[in-house]
């Protein structure tokens, strides 16, 4: 018995995966965008399952409120605000010494997507916002790479596999839901069980897509309600939807810089102004009612103002915001996404 057989024998013994699946897993290069609850768990599981090349993309840093649900990070990393990709890489390297890790401390955007997502066989979504997902979707559709969507909030988990032949994310969701109908982990909370379920469903789809390319998973959006508990399968449309610009016209809106969220540093105090991508303006009243009480959110004079641990966010009717408490546009954008969703 070789060392590989000894290590992975128990998963090779599962008939639908088998030694062939293991081989294909070992030869694949995978990317994970976002190393939060989903991404950190996927990274660990994939490293354990025998993936040998893993690219980790995230620009966030570890914080104490991550630790209840995110793998790979501990109190030291939170205290020192270590970038997640670096904290993760250190732990992952310990799981398998010859694992090739490519940590990328970066915010995925249209201008760096080719560099960050290039040369990968499959991409896993660990992001927390629709804007990034459309970007992954469009890049993958354009470059013929499969990707696996995942999301979790509250007690709910979702996952789906998207293959280049379609349908794609835009076929299912032509537009991002408005911010006020899109709860975030900050506003609606998150149980680790929901995160674990979403990541497990993603992992399962990933193992099947990679391990059994001749028998890909059927096109379902998996929706798990972990408290009830209950898993529903929502069938995708059979093929690409007629009105999907990506599948029918080969147009990739998220790859054009115009639609990217722009962050702009201000002169003045520790503050960054965020201009959201084009779209309907947020409903400030609904947003205000959804924010937890400790934010002391007030809606007055047409501005929604909330306190956050880092400082303050002021959201204006047209969706622009001032994030106070940082000079770093990337951090400001992350705070905006975290509290106000996208």
């Amino acid at each position: 018995m070789t060392a590989e057989e000894e290590r992975y024998g128990r998963q090779e013994r599962v008939p639908c995966f088998g030694p062939g699946g293991q081989e294909r897993l070992a030869s694949a290069a995978l990317g994970i965008v976002g190393l939060g609850a989903l991404g950190s768990r996927l990274a660990e599981d994939l490293a354990r399952a025998g993936v040998l090349r893993l690219r980790l993309i995230d620009r966030d840093w570890v914080e104490i409120h991550n630790l209840h649900r995110q793998h790979l990070y501990g109190e030291d990393a939170a205290r020192e605000a270590v970038p997640k990709v670096l904290a993760a890489a250190e732990r992952l390297a310990d799981i398998r010494k010859d694992l090739t890790l490519e940590p990328e401390l970066a915010d995925l955007d249209p201008s760096n997507a080719d560099r960050l997502l290039g040369d990968l066989d499959l991409i896993l979504d660990g992001t927390d916002n629709f804007q990034s997902r459309y970007l992954i979707n469009d890049w993958c559709a354009k470059n013929g790479v499969p990707w696996i969507y995942g999301a979790c909030v509250g007690t709910e988990a979702m996952a789906a596999a998207f293959r280049p032949e379609g349908p794609c994310l835009r076929c299912l969701f032509p537009e991002a839901p408005p911010a006020e109908r899109n709860p975030t982990c900050e506003t609606a909370g998150i149980l680790p069980s929901a995160a674990a379920t979403a990541a497990s469903l993603q992992l399962s789809l990933c193992l099947r897509l990679l391990g059994r390319p001749e028998d890909p998973p059927p096109s379902y959006l998996l929706v798990a309600e972990t408290w009830t508990p209950e898993i529903r399968r929502l069938r995708f449309p059979e093929g690409p939807v007629d009105t999907c610009p990506t599948c029918t016209e080969g147009s990739f809106p998220a790859l054009s810089a115009r639609l990217g969220s722009r962050a702009m540093t201000l002169c003045g105090r520790d503050a960054v102004q965020i201009t959201p991508p084009e779209g309907p303006p947020p409903d400030l009243e609904v947003l205000a009612s959804r924010l937890p009480p400790e934010t002391e959110a007030v809606l007055q004079a047409g501005m929604l103002r909330l306190r956050i641990p880092e400082g303050r966010i002021t959201l204006f009717r047209d969706g622009r915001a001032i994030v106070q408490g940082t000079k770093d546009p990337g951090k400001a954008r992350a705070l905006y996404d975290r509290w106000l969703g996208t």
Binding site: C267, G268, R269, A271, Q273, G302, M303, T314
Partner: peptide
């Protein structure tokens, strides 16, 4: 008060000023 915030509030009301340094 931070002029930036007030400036954006004014803009919402259709008044364009300049804030900062």
């Amino acid at each position: 008060l931070d002029p930036v915030e007030v400036g954006m509030g004014l803009e919402q009301e259709g008044i364009q000023v300049r804030t900062g340094f």
